[in-house]
Design a protein around this nucleic acid. Structure first.
Length: 542
RNA sequence: GCGCCCGUAGCUCAAUUGGAUAGAGCGUUUGACUACGGAUCAAAAGGUUGGGGGUUCGAAUCCUCCCGGGCGUACCA
């Protein structure tokens, strides 16, 4: 429907050239009396044309070359809105389109041939993924799915650092746990990793090798084994959520291939860095940011900014058209420095899209739970999946606006899991499957011969809703807002349930019944495709 | 102090990015199948969009000042 209007106005702009001054937008009015689509174009033009918006709207309407079989009515309303009412026979054609496109319905090719890199999770291997990482993981994977739906070739990437202080402490923590197993009196430091998972790994080592590593340097075997085991655990957790990474990118490789040194040299050559107090500073104040920052400490060790800049240059060099970074809000101050650095060295930082999501606040029966991997008073993502299942976990993490805080009450999630909206969507799908099984037994099959019989208010509302699917996916993907898709799917499922209540299939006249089956199949395809983008199952029975 | 994000119904959140009468779910109250799945549907009640001021045809949305919360503001990542 929207595409038709866009074409209509495109050809109209040849006649009324002032339409080229603005981007004509079509929106769906909140109330159906205001039409199926509406545009405020006349009001936007009022100022520059110095004319009454209603007069402009009137002129636009007079010049529209309408096909009465497509648009039944056009109205001038309110302060200058132009409202369009579509002909029911035209809207029902979407059903044929959906049945024909099937798995592809909703996808578009706007970004065909483009490549995107989505970097997410990127937790260092110091412990199991927590509920906090879960939001990052699910948003990232869903965004990747959305980008694929609009034509991108997407690589999912996990960036990690296995050098640094954190990892040293991890190796030492594991060695102490290992020694404890032999009855050694250990004063386990408070700032070491407290979690039980290290005790489990220590036990494995003891079972496999006995006392062999009692005198081992913790930075060798213990650190490596901890990293390996924890990574296996992380990958397993991600795979339970149907998340599979294409690359695991080790920060250390940027040192090995000389990229870090190259970047350092490039900054120096461009006179963008200087030495002060034994450290190397980047002139970020000359690059539009607030203060200069240290990129190499006086100890000779780079700060995170330097490898981050090198890493983003690396990604851009790999030829991606879009580079998405998904960070928690604790990183919100760091990315402007990185992008400024990348731009300064001649790369196109505008290809980098940083998505900042707010934190998950965990409560348990109203009481706030503070999370820290170090202190081990966290709830792991695995435990959460055990409790409520992967589908609920995935849905829960994306159903809210990315930029809003997410309240996650564990007690509520356990207790009320049947009230979760994910079941509402899945139930609609299962219900359709059940109907289709039933109608098949009665030798009824979907027919596109008499779609014009689908003329009741609820049928028309539902059909018009189906029209929006492709636009919603496009919008959701381009704005990096996966919750737009969940809201839309919930609305569509609600309309389906309403349709189900009002419109029977069995027992009604055959032509109407078979048209309704076609509608049911369309909704089923839409739900299945939508759930698939969200990474959820579309069950045939529940 | 400064920067980013947030504040909407009792609770958790929407609102097509500046549009027409601010909407859902949960909870509360009341209804609906002796044929397609009641994990559903219908209805009622619930609001000065944290507060004041401003911008314009029009503001939950933009600007400004307060109030309250989260995250930053490192030679930690």
């Amino acid at each position: 429907m929207k595409k038709y209007l866009e074409k209509l106005f495109e050809s109209l702009s040849n006649k009324l050239s002032y339409l080229n001054e603005i981007e004509v937008q079509f929106s769906i009015p909140a109330v159906s009396e205001h039409g199926d689509y509406s545009t405020n174009a006349a009001m936007l033009l009022a100022k520059s044309l110095k004319k009454n918006p209603r007069a402009i709207a009137s002129e636009i309407i007079d010049n529209l070359e309408l096909d009465k079989n497509i648009i039944a009515k056009v109205e001038l309303a309110g302060a200058g809105f132009i409202n369009f009412f579509f002909h029911p026979d035209y809207t029902t054609k979407i059903i044929s389109e959906i049945l024909q496109k099937d798995d592809h319905f909703g996808k578009s090719n706007k970004f065909e041939g483009k490549r995107a890199n989505v970097e997410f999770v990127s937790a260092n291997p110091t412990g199991p993924l927590t509920v906090g990482h879960g939001r990052n993981a699910v948003i990232g994977d869903t965004l990747a799915n959305l980008l694929e739906s609009i034509g991108y070739d997407v690589d999912r990437e996990y960036y990690f650092n296995n050098a640094g202080r954190q990892m040293r402490v991890l190796g030492e923590s594991l060695k102490l746990r290992y020694l404890e197993l032999f009855g050694d009196k250990i004063d386990f430091p408070a700032d070491y990793y407290q979690g039980d998972y290290l005790i489990d790994i220590a036990r494995k080592i003891k079972e496999e090798f006995g006392e062999k590593y009692r005198n081992e340097d913790p930075l060798n075997y213990f650190k490596q084994r901890a990293e390996y085991e924890i990574f296996e655990d992380i990958k397993n957790t991600l795979s339970r959520l149907k998340i599979e990474m294409k690359n695991f990118f080790n920060e250390h490789s940027l040192y090995e291939n000389g990229n870090i040194q190259d970047v350092l040299n490039a900054f120096k050559d461009k006179n963008l860095s200087y030495d002060k107090d034994g450290a190397v500073w980047l002139k970020l104040s000359e690059l539009g940011n607030e203060n200069d920052k240290v990129i190499v400490k006086s100890t000779g060790e780079p700060t995170y900014r330097l490898p981050d800049i090198a890493y983003h240059m690396n990604k851009l060099e790999r030829g991606y058209d879009l580079v998405v970074d998904l960070f928690g809000s604790d990183h919100n101050a760091t990315y402007p420095d990185v992008i400024a650095g990348v731009n300064a060295l001649g790369y196109d930082g505008s290809k980098i899209k940083v998505v900042i999501h707010q934190f998950v606040t965990i409560t348990d029966g109203g009481e706030k739970v503070k999370m820290s991997t170090r202190k081990a008073n966290f709830i792991t993502l695995d435990e959460l999946i055990d409790e409520v299942g992967p589908d609920v976990v995935r849905y829960f993490f994306i159903m809210r606006n990315v930029s809003s805080h997410l309240n996650f009450d564990i007690a509520l999630a356990k207790k009320h899991n049947e009230e979760n909206p994910v079941f509402y969507l899945q139930y609609a799908h299962a219900r359709i499957c059940s109907i289709l099984r039933m109608t098949e037994e009665q030798n009824l099959a979907a027919s596109q011969e008499n779609l014009s019989l689908l003329s009741s208010e609820v049928e028309q509302s539902l059909i018009k809703k189906l029209h929006q699917f492709e636009d919603v996916i496009l919008y959701s993907a381009e704005s990096f807002e996966p919750n737009k898709l969940t809201s839309y799917l919930e609305e569509t499922a609600a309309l389906f349930h309403k349709f189900y209540t009002e419109c029977r299939i069995l027992g009604t006249e055959k032509n109407l019944a078979e048209a309704r089956i076609a509608l049911c199949e369309s909704v089923k395809i839409l739900l299945k495709n939508g759930l698939s983008i969200l990474g959820l199952n579309a069950p045939e029975k529940m």
